[in-house]
Design a protein around this nucleic acid. Structure first.
Lengths: 357, 357
DNA sequence: ACAATTTTAGAAATCGATTTCCAAAAAAAT
DNA sequence: ATTTTTTTGGAAATCGATTTCTAAAATTGT
């Protein structure tokens, strides 16, 4: 019936040892290619292992070795393109390093985030990668991760007050370049639809926007700079309001493609032509941006690379550091470049189409 | 420095036992609320555990108990809306049941699928949920899962030759209803862009299409039924070809929204008006379908519910069965209903807009 | 007050792999 | 041929929690 077990148990190194009349320790050494075992026995053991369909028990191994070969990621929503791409990149890195990846989602809830952290600490994961929920303003739960000697790596939505590794996009530069591009295209009254103030990435994008505006010597009405606009709905209502203003904007830079889509809808419904009368640049390069009409200019965050690099911060820096027991001397902050993808929604002058920065 | 450890080790039940002058076994029982320990000691142990910041070691526990409270999911691509929604649903179920979810992606590669299965067996996961890669045609690796007494649940892209739990959409009915809708809208020459023949879900959709065609007494040219059209590119070139045919179709039903998008692009570039001259219905209700112009009619697969239900098959049926050691008497095949979302791309007669089926 | 029963806590074995330390065997050097 | 060195394999302890079995303590009943 079942060829894999003896007495319905998994095959262990003891079974192999018994069959070959060896000691379990020798079997372990042979399977792990350790130095002080002869090649003859290694071959013998390995072929017998295959014959008996032996499966290495990671729980036993991890218990003995004191690590779990498992890292975890906590994201607000798995099914948002940016995060699912990030996760795809992390999975790729884990696969290459033969580690397991556990995922948790917080649904933007602070309470769920705390629970996820608790569970993962019990789970003995070696490293937690996290992008904070919108509700998260305190960091005791993150400190708890560190206190339990689990490596903490924050990405994208990070809290800078904590001494942890962080991986974020070059948000300020990206925003600066996006706005500069709008200016180059002849737009002069550029509005900014931003995010919540407590998350650094959104503040950085705002700074980039302001820098470009300042550099171009443009004066912007106070109400052109709006915060907490993250969804299509809020983007639409916000654009609607601004476009009814006595001095309406002629361009929008938004920190999300969803809010950019809202702007586009509002512009359409009010009869403004995009890009002739209104220019729009979004953020994240969601997959819908090149499908809609007009296609939407956006900042690509290299999300898959960001995810892979984030996981590799653990593998390359922290893991090695742990082994060497060396002290902390590595770069703590990692930056991922963005690419501005210029499409129809901001191309008033028909010229080039795609610039890397 | 670090309040959580003694000698830089994690706090164990032995530490608690020593501090309270108890036996480790009693500590374990207290922490697990087992019956034969007094409430007084339970309280004592629990408060001491909190005081020392004790963290349960799951590797040790799992090794002893032989299970891991962890289930795994293998998908072709994490960053495809359908799969990321499925995973979101699974994560939700796992969170409710206090289980961990490990994810692996195969990138549609058979080799990576086999490796993922291997790793997960080693990892001692309790259950593997899998949606097969496009390359997967044999099932020995799935049999291996069963042989190792790990529960196997297939979803969406399933192989029926195996005796496992499966969760799929009502694909045949959904396709039937979609095509019937096209017929109701007055389309008569309906083409079908399908998937590979070895995956049942695609064959089911084809059957639903054929059933509707047959029922309406329509004759279809042989080349209207195409297989292996899964991407935007192939959808576009395929539609291009068919629309140049001496007797071109007036509608397309596709098994993917991406290929439907390709059809739309081809129709646009050839000057066909959608939906007046060409009707289109896609499959999966990807998020871009309601953003593009015209909006794309599609079959919604209830992906998040599918994921949650799939995980709950394990929790409700298998887990309980295991505990009772009862025999196998449960429903093996689960069906998730689809909803036809009627949008502009197939609405020639302006009537109703959304039907549930 | 004593016997019978039930509660409660502890000792020790166990899960399966790893690792340290040791001894036997083989190879090399004298 | 004998000593020294190097290789190689084994015995036993270990990782931390669980569980079975046993014995002591507490409760109940007579």
């Amino acid at each position: 019936m079942n060829v894999n077990r003896k007495n319905n148990r998994r095959v262990t190194i003891y079974d192999i040892a018994k069959e070959l009349d060896l000691a379990p320790s020798s079997v372990s050494k042979a399977l792990n290619d350790m130095p002080n075992i002869s090649d003859k026995i290694k071959l013998l053991v390995k072929s017998k292992a295959k014959e008996l369909n032996y499966k290495h028990n990671l729980n036993a191994s991890n218990l003995r070795k004191g690590s779990s070969s498992t890292i975890a990621v906590i994201v607000p929503k798995i099914n948002v393109a940016f995060f699912s791409n990030v996760i795809a990149g992390m999975e790729e890195a884990c696969f290459e390093k033969n580690h397991r990846l556990i995922i948790c989602q917080t649904d933007e809830s602070f309470t769920k985030e705390i629970q996820a952290v608790e569970t993962l600490i019990h789970q003995n994961v070696d490293c937690i990668l996290i992008s904070l929920s919108l509700e998260t303003k305190s960091t005791e739960h993150l400190q708890e991760i560190i206190n339990n000697q689990i490596e903490l790596i924050q990405f994208d939505r990070v809290n800078d007050s904590l001494d942890s590794y962080t991986i974020v996009n070059e948000n300020k530069d990206a925003a600066y370049n996006a706005v500069k591009h709008l200016i180059d295209q002849g737009y002069k009254k550029i509005a900014f639809l931003g995010g919540p103030d407590h998350l650094k990435i959104y503040m950085d994008r705002k700074e980039g926007y302001l820098k470009a505006i300042k550099e171009a010597n443009i004066t912007i009405p106070y109400n052109y700079v709006v915060k907490d606009v993250l969804t299509t709905e809020s983007g639409m209502s916000c654009a609607n309001e601004l476009l009814h203003f006595h001095e309406p904007p002629d361009a929008f830079f938004t920190i999300s493609d969803y809010s950019a889509l809202g702007v586009l809808k509002a512009a359409n419904s009010l009869g403004f032509k995009v890009p002739q009368e209104i220019g729009i640049v979004g953020f994240s390069n969601e997959s819908f941006t090149e499908i809609i009409t007009p296609t939407l200019s956006s900042v690509d965050q290299n999300s898959r690379k960001l995810g892979k690099d984030a996981a590799n911060v653990y593998f390359n820096h922290l893991l090695k550091q742990k082994e060497r027991k060396g002290s902390d001397g590595k770069i703590k902050k990692h930056i991922i470049k963005c690419s501005l993808i210029i499409r129809d929604s901001s191309s008033r002058k028909k010229s080039f189409r795609k610039i890397k920065l």
